[in-house]
Design a protein around this nucleic acid. Structure first.
Lengths: 237, 237
DNA sequence: CGGGAGGTTGAGTAGTATCAAATGAAGTGG
DNA sequence: CCACTTCATTTGATACTACTCAACCTCCCG
C-alpha cells in the first residue's frame, strides 16, 4: 500500500533518522521528494533473498524481521530491525543480490528511497558516506558476535538470550508481558534450533519461575537471572 | 620489525590495492608517506581483541588469521585474510574496540596507516569512502553466510568446507598438498569444534580417499567430492 | 633417556534433533 | 451449536551427533 505524503512530512521523517543528520538542507529536500511511503501488513515482505534491491528502506514504524534461508529450507532470523533502522543498504551498495529476506513483524510503515538517489548522495557527500560506513561496520560487529553466540553456546543460553533480545525489540507492557505474540517456530528460527527444543526450554524457564506462559504470551519474571543465563550474550549488556 | 621504505616503494604498494584506485596522485603520495612497513614473524599479533586500533593494516604478503575468543576461552577463526586485504577498518571507523585478534599465520609483510591519516582521506574523497563502504558490505555478507554455516551444518560438512577454504587461502603445491602446516587445534578453531572431532573427520576422509595425511601435511585427492560434501558452503563456489 | 606437546583412539555421555502421538486452539460449514 | 479440519503446541521416546575424558602413541628436544 502506497500513501501520499507532503515534502514536509518526509522531511520530518528524515530528521528522525540520525543517518541523515549530515545532509544539507538541499540534500534533504532532494531525498524527501524521492521517498515513497508504504504501509505494510504483517508478514508482508519488503524484499526477498536473491533479488537485486532497487531501494534503501527506512523503517518508520514497526519491526522488521530479517531472515536467511539455509540448507533444507531451515530459516534463521539474523536480525530484528526496529524503527529508525535501515534495510537493504548492503545490496544497494555492492550491487549484489540480497542475501536475506525481510518481512514485517506486525504492521510496518516504511520509506523507500531509490538506489540511484541514495548513491548520488553517497558520492557527493563524504560525511554521509562516512556515516553509512560506520553503520555497516557496526552491523558487521554485531554479526560477528552473533557467530560466537550460535557456535559456542548451548540452547539454554541462546533461548535466554533470544528472550531478552525479543524483550528489547518488542518491548514489555506494564505487566512485563512481551508486546508481541511470536510462534514457537519463529522463536526457534531466532535461536537457531527446532521448535521442540524451544518449548522444552520455555517449560523449564517457567518451572524455574523465570517466565510465565499463557498461550503465546510471555511474561518476564526474573530478567536478571535470564541475563546471567545468557552470559556473554551479544544481545544483553 | 620495522623497515624503511622509499616513497616510491610505498606508492607501488598502494597501487596494488584496488581499494586505493580512486585516490588522486596527491592523496596517494600523502598516504605513501604515512605508511609504516613491518615484517612480522609467524604468530605475531597485528592487534589484540579489546584494543582501540590506531592503524589500518594492509596485508602486503602472507596470511593473517583473524580470531575471536568466546566463552571458556574457546577460540574461533573468523577469517583468513590474504595479501591485498585490509584489517582493522571496523574498529578504526567506529572508534570501538577491536572485537577480534589478528595474528600472522606464517611470515607477513604489512603496511600500517595511521587512523587519522585514513579518516582524513575518507572525509575528503567520497569515492574512497564509497569503496570502503562496499568492502564493509561484502565482509558483512560473508559473515552472515558464515553464520548459517556454523549454525546449520554438521561437523562433516564444516570440516570439508574448511579444508576447501584452507586450500583456497594457502594454496596447494603441484602435488595437491596444502602449502601450510596447520595444527589440528587450529583447524578445529576454524571449523568451530574440538580437535578430536576434526581428527575423526580427517581420518574418515582419508578412509574415503578424499585426502591423504602425512603428519600435518594434507594432500587433496578428491576435491569435487569435498565440494559436494560441503554443499551450500560459503567457502566454496 | 625422560619429559612434554601434539596427535590419535576409544568409551562414555550430554545435549539436541527427530519422530510420533496427544492435546489444544481456531476456524469452517452444515 | 456442533462435528470436522487444520494447524500450532506440547509431551514422550528414541536416535544420534559431537563433546568430554582418559589412555596411549609419536616425535622432538634437552
Amino acid at each position: 500500500m502506497r500513501t501520499k505524503h507532503s515534502t514536509n512530512e518526509s522531511l520530518a521523517l528524515l530528521n528522525s533518522f540520525s543517518l541523515f543528520d549530515c545532509l544539507s538542507g538541499d540534500e534533504k529536500l532532494y531525498l524527501a521528494d524521492n521517498i515513497v511511503h508504504k504501509e505494510l501488513d504483517s508478514k508482508t515482505a519488503l524484499y526477498h533473498e536473491g533479488c537485486a534491491l532497487q531501494h534503501l528502506m527506512l523503517i518508520i514504524e514497526g519491526i522488521v524481521k530479517q531472515v536467511k534461508r539455509g540448507a533444507k529450507g531451515k530459516e534463521l532470523v539474523i536480525r530484528y530491525a526496529r524503527s529508525g533502522e535501515i534495510l537493504g543498504f548492503r545490496s544497494v551498495m555492492t550491487n549484489e543480490l540480497a542475501c536475506t529476506t525481510s518481512e514485517a513483524a506486525g504492521p510496518v510503515k516504511a520509506g523507500f528511497i531509490k538506489k540511484g538517489c541514495l548513491l548520488k548522495l553517497v558520492r557527493t557527500n563524504t560525511n554521509f558516506a562516512y556515516k553509512l560506513l560506520q553503520m555497516a561496520c557496526m552491523e558487521l560487529e554485531e554479526t560477528q558476535r552473533f557467530i560466537l553466540n550460535v557456535s559456542q553456546k548451548q540452547i539454554r543460553e541462546r533461548v535466554a538470550a533470544t528472550l531478552l533480545h525479543l524483550a528489547d525489540i518488542f518491548q514489555l507492557d506494564e505487566d512485563n508481558t512481551l508486546k508481541a505474540t511470536i510462534s514457537r517456530k519463529e522463536i526457534a528460527s531466532a535461536v537457531g534450533t527446532v521448535p521442540e527444543s524451544v518449548i522444552r526450554m520455555l517449560s523449564e524457564f517457567k518451572e524455574d519461575k523465570l517466565i510465565e506462559l499463557n498461550g503465546r504470551q510471555i511474561r518476564y519474571i526474573d530478567i536478571p537471572k535470564l541475563k546471567r543465563m545468557s552470559y556473554s550474550s551479544f544481545y544483553s549488556v
